[in-house]
């Protein structure tokens, strides 16, 4: 039952992609910016979690919450400092700024602490494995999966049931109409960055606990893959990011399981190319036609 095991691994990995992809998609939904620094927020989250666990001896959940809070503030600062003044600039200017921001964070972290990797302690979560239909399932991967799913449920609740969530949806649909409702657009955008970055921070800690090794450039590949996941689901669409992340994780695991481990990373980008050719609006995207 190698397959079932790979499937569970794929879903766990996919849920990490999904958490990162959510931030991409929410930010894109609201200001139409591909925030290339988002993968680096994930990296910062992993390091903050690491220092909280190793340095301060915090447990998993306190470290997770601390990292989420830290990244929320960090994400808001990035938006306020770098992106806010570009709101009426061309898209390419904003995109270049985002890439610059990404490099700044990566090399800022290297400057501050060096480029050497760190290893998360392996006793953060109890790890037992048990047998399910003959497959060896580790309790860690199930635990990580449930934390990710829990965060996504909370996000759905925020977006659909709270006032700030409704404001976010209104702003992403029509910024000026939202202003006419009395919605403070700047503040709503800040909340979006805060929530998206907190999820990336959570993904960073989960990643660290699951894969152990973290380093300052670790955000690049998962960031790109999460971007693919967001496009796959339909950029700007929240459930799309979740489903896109899970699909991508499972596809990668299946590709590895078939013995093509070296093709794992390529799989994501082949998916990106296929989706851009055959369904550029993504799985959940509709070909929007405005009603006049």
């Amino acid at each position: 039952m190698e397959w079932l095991q790979q499937l569970i691994n794929g879903i766990s990995l996919g849920s990490i992609y999904a958490l990162i992809a959510l931030g991409y998609t929410m930010v894109y939904g609201i200001i139409k910016l591909i925030n290339f620094a988002h993968g680096d927020v994930f990296m910062v989250g992993a390091f903050v979690g690491f220092y909280a666990i190793k340095g301060w001896g915090l447990g998993f959940f306190p470290a997770l919450l601390f990292s989420m809070a830290f990244c929320a503030v960090f994400g808001v600062l990035i938006e306020r400092i770098a992106y806010k003044r570009l709101r009426n600039a061309t898209r390419i200017a904003a995109l270049i700024t985002a890439i610059g921001m990404s490099l700044l964070i990566e090399y800022g972290v290297i400057y501050a602490r060096g480029a050497q990797p760190e290893a998360y302690p392996d006793n953060v979560l109890p790890s037992t494995s048990f047998n399910l239909f003959g497959a060896q399932i580790s309790s860690q991967s199930l635990f990580i999966l449930s934390v990710s799913v829990g965060l996504m449920i909370i996000l759905q609740f925020i977006v659909h049931r709270t006032k700030i969530g409704k404001a976010m949806r209104a702003v992403s649909h029509d910024m000026d109409a939202a202003r006419l409702m009395g919605i403070n657009v700047d503040r709503t955008i800040s909340y979006t960055f805060a929530i998206g970055s907190a999820l990336a921070g959570a993904a960073g800690v989960i990643f660290g606990v699951y894969y152990t090794k973290i380093e300052p450039l670790m955000g690049i590949i998962p960031g790109l893959k999460a971007f693919v996941a967001a496009v796959l689901g339909g950029i700007g669409i929240i459930p799309g990011a979740m489903v896109g992340g899970l699909i991508l994780g499972v596809v990668e695991s299946v590709v590895s399981a078939m013995g093509f481990s070296l093709w794992r990373d390529a799989a994501a980008f082949i998916i990106l190319i296929l989706i851009l050719i055959f369904r550029p609006s993504g799985i959940f995207g509709k070909n929007t036609r405005e009603k006049v």
Binding site: K163, K166, A167, A170, H173, D174, A178, M181, I183, E290
Partner: peptide, 16 residues
Amino acid sequence: FANMSVEENLELGAYL
């Protein structure tokens, strides 16, 4: 707000 229900639109009108 085309992606929201009639009632949600009305609720947004009362945002403040």
